[in-house]
Amino acid sequence: MGGVTAADAVIPVFADVDTGVDDAMALAYLFASADARVVGIASTAGNVPVDQVCANNLGLLELCGTSEIPVSKGSQRPLAIPLRTAEDTHGPEGIGYAQLPVGGGTLTDYDAAQAWVRAAREYPGELVGLAVGPLTNLALALRLEPALPRLLRRLVIMGGAFGYRGNTTPVAEWNVNVDPEAAAEVFSVWGAAWGLEPPAHLPIVLGLNLTENAVMTPSTLSRLAAAANSSTTPMSVLDDRGTRSAAANPLIRVLEDAMRFYFEFHFDQGEGYIAHLHDPLAAAVALDPDLVRYRQATVDVELTGTLTRGMTVPDWTGHWGRHLNARVGIDVDPGVFFERFIARVGPFAATLA
Rank of each mutant, 00 (worst) to 15 (best):
F14T: 12
E181P: 03
I81Q: 14
A141C: 12
P82S: 08
G91M: 01
D240H: 08
V299K: 07
E339D: 15
P234A: 08
N57F: 06
A350S: 14
E185A: 11
E122R: 15
E145G: 10
Y273W: 12
N57Y: 05
L151I: 03
L148A: 12
A131H: 08
T211H: 07
A32H: 02
V215A: 09
S75M: 06
V301A: 09
A183P: 02
A32M: 07
F341E: 04
T317I: 14
L152K: 04
L27R: 06
T312K: 05
N209P: 11
H276T: 13
A284R: 09
L206G: 10
T5D: 06
R153K: 15
D22H: 11
P198H: 15
L100S: 06
D22T: 03
E122V: 06
S72D: 04
V215S: 07
V117H: 04
L291P: 03
P203V: 13
A227H: 00
I81C: 07
K73H: 02
S231Y: 07
R37G: 06
T351S: 15
W116A: 12
D239V: 12
F265H: 09
I41T: 07
A141P: 01
L352T: 00
Q52K: 13
E62F: 09
L140K: 13
Y294R: 10
T5Q: 08
F265P: 03
V254L: 06
H276S: 11
T169S: 12
D239W: 03
A326W: 00
D109V: 11
D88F: 00
P78Y: 10
M235E: 13
L255C: 08
M216I: 15
P146K: 01
P78W: 02
T308Y: 09
T308R: 15
L151S: 12
R244G: 08
L196C: 05
P170G: 04
T232K: 03
A147S: 15
E212R: 08
T136H: 10
F263L: 10
R154N: 07
Y97A: 07
P78D: 09
M259Q: 07
I157S: 05
P180N: 14
A225I: 01
Q269S: 11
W194F: 13
Y262M: 04
A139E: 00
I204N: 03
A226I: 00
H266P: 01
R309I: 11
A98I: 01
T220D: 02
T5N: 07
D111I: 15
I157N: 05
V128L: 05
A36L: 07
G195H: 01
T351R: 02
I69N: 09
I157H: 06
A353R: 01
P198V: 07
V215W: 00
I330F: 04
A36S: 09
Q296R: 14
L144S: 11
R153T: 10
R293P: 02
M311W: 12
V156L: 05
G335P: 01
R154A: 08
A343F: 05
Q269A: 15
A184F: 03
L251Y: 02
Y164V: 03
V215D: 04
A15M: 13
N325A: 09
R322D: 10
V38R: 03
T168Q: 07
A115T: 10
V189F: 00
S236C: 13
S72G: 05
R150V: 04
H201S: 13
D111F: 14
A45W: 01
V4M: 14
A286V: 13
F187T: 08
A282E: 04
S236M: 10
T168G: 01
A297E: 09
R295A: 11
F14Y: 15
T85L: 06
A184K: 01
